[in-house]
Design a protein around this nucleic acid. Structure first.
Lengths: 207, 207
DNA sequence: GTAACAATGTTAATAAAATAACAATAATCA
DNA sequence: TGATTATTGTTATTTTATTAACATTGTTAC
């Protein structure tokens, strides 16, 4: 099944929201309640759920547990996926922190950095290896996804290396636009651009 | 002028790329060169530039300096805009780091946190104030934009407070969906969702 | 039991974004 | 000079994403 990227993003948010519902002992939820919690429309929720082929049995809304399972079957893999953070500075540590104590199919198994102070230490819950070990560790730990939080000047080189050694997905937080061969999925997020966008629309609102 | 959000994002990237060109002593650039550097198409570049009403005089490509100025006139404000980072943990420090040593219309003027270890210290180049001072400091320092990197449980409350005290733009890095009145511009970025999206498309590629 | 209601799933319409097509024009070169 | 090429600016087309419309079907109220 080939879902639109935007739908996948929302599925991730639906699942998180539904898990909160479980915590609140809510076992059923209406499309408009789910929508309201993430500030979108009920139609969008229903359309997304249609795309993944989920339907409520009752008219009491969606079965929270069931929907969590359905979404998980779609966006999760069967087996655990190994993730690494490349560059364990402030941003890298922030990202690593998100994985701490979370049970999910995505497992952070390593970080990489070249700072001697960091190498071989456990930082934010994960052991740090030198960049030189990337090839070996990708293979040894079966790392599939890399989260790139390195300084600008090393981004391109490290990416090429990782791609060569079989990484399948990259989330690029640097401001360097990357180029990857087909077969490797690349997602980029540029913080500066986001901030400048906010500034632009703040300015426009005012006028 | 009311530009599409996507165009604004690209303008930010164009400008950064053009500044790199200046560093390389390149004074003119073709649409397809500019496009290649950020891995989009030349048509998209030309279309965006059409929207902002910029045209090259010569057929030697765009005048780098001139285009930087044109873009800056569109996305920058006349005066300096004051920004604050709310929550100066790892992510907050990463964001603050981006501002360090940069000359731009966006100035990071404060951070806020409740950790006594941080309060009144200069962290990542910016002084940290307690949350209790938010009202006072927004007014005193004329803070217009807030970058929200706080723990989940305080996100909603602090946002409401900031909105009340006149913040005009929020970049929300927490996974809590926020609600702001019209007149306040909100941009949200959810790291977890991005990672899960990468995982999904890695899985789909494989099949 | 049935009328009124509330919620869903799906198709249709609209809006937004990206891509393609192409005329216009400067530069190059035979 | 005149043909060819390269590049732009703009309009048209296609694709993608969102929103609206609506028939269907449990549920509730009487």
């Amino acid at each position: 099944m080939k879902l639109p990227g935007k739908t996948v993003e929302r599925l991730s948010k639906y699942r998180r929201t539904l898990l909160e519902c479980l915590n609140e002992k809510r076992n059923f939820i209406y499309s408009h309640d789910l929508a309201a919690r993430i500030h979108i429309t009920a139609v969008q929720v229903r359309r997304d759920l249609m795309l993944i082929g989920y339907s409520s049995v009752l008219r009491k809304g969606y079965d929270v547990r069931e929907l969590i399972d359905t979404i998980s079957k779609i966006i999760d893999s069967e087996e655990s996926i190994h993730v690494a953070v490349i560059g364990i500075g402030n941003l890298g540590r922030a990202v690593a922190g998100y994985f701490k104590g979370k049970r999910s199919k995505l497992n952070l198994v390593a970080s990489f950095d070249n700072d001697p102070q960091k190498i071989n230490k456990v930082i934010s819950g994960v052991k740090c290896y030198p960049y030189n070990d990337i090839e070996r560790m990708i293979k040894e730990l079966d790392i599939r996804i890399a989260i790139l939080t390195v300084p600008l000047d090393s981004a391109k080189e490290i990416t090429e290396e990782m791609v060569r050694y079989g990484i399948k997905g990259i989330l690029n937080f640097t401001t360097i636009p990357l180029n990857v061969p087909s077969g490797v999925y690349l997602e980029e997020y540029d913080m500066i651009t986001s901030i400048e966008k906010v500034a632009y629309f703040v300015k426009e609102n005012k006028i």
